[in-house]
């Protein structure tokens, strides 16, 4: 049983919340993944964690949340592990964080690139990962379809 659970550890890495679609789609993803039996952790900066706590006060969707930089530190020191990482990026910093995650952990990495510059950001990715790219800021519909293809 424990072995089964360990194989289902997923961590969502959320970047800056200035692109609204990130918050909505990450709540949705967390919901879907938990429903499918995954154990979900969200690693995010303090702004995102505050948004999540206000949006989901009883934690129906987002369960465990940890500070993004502490999580990177724990990864570097091999204190945490997971089976799948889903990293969001809508700017150069997001790609930089995703590269760091790729370097520090050999798990499956799904990079979700969003925002107005999604196509240009995609060109910066030169590491192994699965990419979901959608040029969206507010509208989650097409992004949801693409993520459903990955997880449903």
């Amino acid at each position: 049983m424990n072995e089964q659970k360990e194989k289902n550890e997923v961590i969502l890495f959320l970047g800056c919340p200035e692109v609204p679609v990130q918050m909505g789609i990450s709540l949705y993803l967390s919901y879907i993944l938990v429903k499918k039996g995954y154990s979900v952790t969200v690693a995010a900066n303090p702004s995102v964690i505050k948004l999540a706590r206000v949006s989901d006060p009883e934690r129906h969707y987002m369960g465990r949340m940890i500070d993004l930089d502490h999580c990177i530190g724990d990864l570097a020191e091999k204190k945490i592990s997971f089976d799948t990482a889903i990293a969001f990026a809508h700017n150069d910093a997001g790609i930089t964080y995703a590269t760091t995650i790729r370097y520090l952990h050999a798990s499956r990495l799904i990079l979700v690139i969003i925002g107005r510059n999604a196509e240009d950001l995609k060109k910066l990715v030169d590491f192994q990962c699965e990419m979901v790219v959608e040029k969206t800021v507010h509208n989650p519909v097409e992004l949801k379809k693409k993520l459903d293809e990955v997880f449903l």
Partner: peptide, 16 residues
């Protein structure tokens, strides 16, 4: 250095 290198008690985020 590589990503995660510790400098001033912080692990560096970066593209190697």
């Amino acid at each position: 250095v590589d990503p995660g290198f510790r400098l001033f008690e912080k692990h560096i985020i970066g593209i190697p």
